[in-house]
Nucleic acid binder design. Structure first.
Length: 371
RNA sequence: GGUGGAGUUCCCGAGUGGCCAAAGGGGGCAGACUGUAAAUCUGCUAGCAAUGCUUUCCGUGGUUCGAAUCCACGUUCCACCA
């Protein structure tokens, strides 16, 4: 029904290669999960998404309950029936919206009260409600409702959020009924070692089938995030999948894998792709830049994606002309890049040379380089 | 040929005596984006030895302490009338 096979652990890093087996299909790890917040990975058809190497995608509880409503999704047989995506899905609980939509949210011990960003109506999101919605959505993996706070924040704020996250995780677990769905818990605790270790330990006691590290990439420097993973991930069960939520850049993914993370999700490849930024092995490419006007090279040599069958000059033109094909092609390219990165990472782990693999690709994604 | 209207910085367009190197768009250039309120957002866009200076608002001349703004002539475009 649901299992995680740990196939290989790297000798010099914490990197792991594994196989996630779910009722909706298998996923080789480490893996990247593109974000399809409202039931669509923006701009990308399922066939194309499959061709990027994607095996599991995300949906969002908060966004889908507002529109179209989980009853509608349920009517169509859950996310898979509704969207046509037949593989595994993971739904976020709405916890991230406590952070990203904080201005419209009031948090109490019972749950979160949202002011809908669409029509202003009030929405009660309790842990039980988050479970119920996700059960109606029929996702393969559901996340517990957690309390995400930005960084930096006073220690008391971080601790309160962490404690609440644990209490809510328990309530989510107790409320969960759906047999064909597993629930992952989420470790919070900011950048505080003791808090992270404590949170992980208390959640592990509750025996969830998988664990996520949340509350990162919310304002802190990447090095602090890596450091947090250094002492948080070892607290999680080795034989269960580990998911780093909302992360990140290609470098973040490689660093996360090196610290024992198996699953990632991030809007970056799709959002940045829509905004004319491409990820490549030689760094970022801002295709709107004038220097690409007459560039007849493909975006990236050796990339099998449809964007790379065109010239950079043409891709630039699509963005300048505001043609929808530009965002579509670049989203596909970026997801393809992320998936290839994970595939290559997995191969390196299986081959026993992950550390070397990472060393060879110290890409500075803050700089531009046109290859 | 006559009458009326109009010519503003790359483009469109506001401005009708000083607070104007000149609103606002567009275009151009650059940057940002990490469990998606994002096909979005931000900055720059006359020049320079630059807390100031120089050259601009069709052209030339004039009025004025001061003109994109007022006057005269010229010029181009538009509308209508012949």
């Amino acid at each position: 029904m649901f299992s995680f096979e740990l196939q290989k652990t790297d000798a010099t890093t914490q990197a792991r290669a594994g196989m996630l087996r779910t009722v909706h299909g298998e996923v080789a790890t480490p893996t990247f999960m593109p974000v399809g917040t409202v039931g669509s990975v923006k701009g990308i058809e399922i066939r194309q998404l499959e061709e990027t190497g994607t095996r599991i995608i995300l949906g969002n509880t908060y966004h889908l309950t507002l529109r179209p409503g989980e009853d509608v999704v349920w009517h169509f047989g859950g996310l898979r029936g509704f969207t046509g995506w037949q593989g595994p899905t993971l739904t976020d609980s709405g916890g991230f919206q406590l952070f990203s939509l904080a201005k419209m949210t009031k948090i109490t011990e019972n749950g979160a009260v949202f002011r809908s960003h669409i029509d202003g109506r009030l929405l009660d999101l309790t842990p039980e409600k988050a479970v119920e919605i996700q059960e109606a959505l029929g996702s393969t993996i559901a996340m517990v409702l957690d309390h995400v706070v930005g960084l930096p924040n006073p220690e008391k704020v971080v601790r309160d959020a962490m404690e609440r996250t644990i209490r809510w995780a328990k309530r989510c677990r107790d409320a969960h009924r759906l047999e064909n769905q597993v629930q992952f818990a989420i470790v919070q605790g900011g950048l505080d070692r003791a808090m992270r270790v404590e949170c992980a330990g208390r959640l592990v006691e509750l025996d969830f089938p998988g664990y996520a590290v949340g509350g990162l990439s919310v304002g802190e420097a990447p090095e602090l995030m890596y450091e947090t993973l250094d002492y948080t991930v070892p607290e999680l069960p080795a034989r269960k999948p580990r998911y780093l939520m909302g992360v990140g850049t290609p470098t973040d993914l490689l660093e996360g894998v090196a610290r024992g993370i198996d699953m990632f999700d991030c809007v970056m490849p799709t959002r940045n792709g829509r905004n004319a930024m491409a990820f490549t092995d030689f760094g970022k490419v801002r295709l709107r830049n004038a220097k690409y006007q007459y560039d007849d090279r493909p975006l990236e040599d050796g990339c099998p994606c449809p964007a790379c069958r065109r010239s950079r000059g043409y891709l630039r033109h699509l963005f300048i002309a505001k043609e929808m094909l530009g965002p579509i092609l670049l989203s596909i390219h970026n997801i393809t890049y992320y998936q290839r990165l994970m595939t290559r990472a997995r191969e390196a782990i299986l081959a026993g040379n992950y550390a070397e693999f990472v060393r060879q690709r110290k890409i500075d994604f803050t700089r531009e380089n046109d290859g």
